[in-house]
């Protein structure tokens, strides 16, 4: 997943919504771990529209 650091508001909405618990927010940096199965829920959830699926534009 690609995170726009300009758009991300560090709110954690994606973290709590991730069915795989694969996202970690350390104050301001979002990290996806290997459990991410690219389901795309975070892309839809993100209130700031800051997350994109890799390879999609």
């Amino acid at each position: 997943m690609i995170v726009s650091i300009e758009k991300c508001m560090h709110c954690g909405a994606c973290v709590g919504s991730c069915p795989q618990n694969a996202i970690f927010l350390n104050e301001i940096v979002l990290e996806f771990n290997e459990n991410c199965n690219k389901c795309g829920r975070c892309v839809r959830i993100c209130p700031a529209g800051a997350i994109e699926m890799e390879g999609k534009k």
Binding site: G12, A13, V15, G16, S17, C18, P19, N21, F24, L25, R41, R44, I45, C46, P47, A48
Partner: peptide, 26 residues
């Protein structure tokens, strides 16, 4: 740990949500 609810899930308690049970806010 709030909405993120990671500690419970790391420990093995399933707190994951359906899309119909999540509200996203601005």
């Amino acid at each position: 740990d709030g909405f993120e609810s990671q500690v419970a899930r790391w420990a093995g308690i399933d707190t994951s949500l359906k899309a119909g049970d999540i509200t996203t806010c601005y």
